[in-house]
């Protein structure tokens, strides 16, 4: 059902959604649903919540397709960001009680092979491991500063500083 990314015209599908073509939305769902659901599940950890968010994300994609601006980034990236930020909003509002009750596998120290050719992988490799963990726990697991601090057993203020400095380092490295 899922095509290789380069064979699927995300932008054309968004344009079709903006014209009211519901089949285009369905094809987008078939194409991106599993990836987005995986991202959501990783962030919120609860299948029912992840499905609610995926539902909301597709309504938002449908309603917002007309406002997608290719100048600002790729269509696939836009769909991803819309979805991810819905989950982040939800997480920050809910204040998860038990960040440690991890149902899924942790992001390991070694990054996945699929990332190895990317620039961000090389940049993350240059960070001290605890700072790399800050970035990954925040971006992939949706952890707040406090949750990262609890996870790494480091003081909150230290973690805040690590996150800030890691971001500066990443920007310099990534350009």
């Amino acid at each position: 059902m899922t095509l290789p990314e380069h064979l699927f015209d995300y932008e054309a599908h968004l344009a079709a959604c903006a014209r009211g073509d519901r089949q285009a939305l369905q094809r987008l769902y078939q194409q991106e649903g599993p990836r987005l659901y995986g991202v959501l599940l990783r962030l919120v950890r609860e299948p029912a919540v992840a499905e609610d968010l995926l539902h909301d994300a597709f309504l938002r994609i449908w309603a917002g397709a007309g406002s997608f601006d290719a100048q600002r980034g790729s269509a696939r990236g836009w769909i991803f960001s819309v979805t991810r930020h819905l989950a982040l909003n939800d997480l920050r509002k809910r204040q998860r009680d038990a960040p440690q009750s991890v149902l899924l596998e942790e992001v390991g120290e070694g990054l996945e092979a699929s990332l190895q050719s990317t620039r961000i992988y090389q940049c993350l490799e240059q960070l001290p491991s605890e700072r790399r963990a800050c970035i990954l726990h925040a971006y992939v697991d949706g952890f707040s500063h406090a949750e990262i601090a609890a996870k790494l057993g480091a003081p909150l203020g230290t973690v805040k500083g690590w996150v800030k400095r890691s971001l500066v380092a990443l920007r310099e490295c990534l350009g």
Partner: peptide
């Protein structure tokens, strides 16, 4: 965005 690939795809 490339970090998004760290979450494995799952069928809803």
């Amino acid at each position: 965005e490339p970090l998004g690939a760290l979450a494995p795809a799952q069928a809803p």
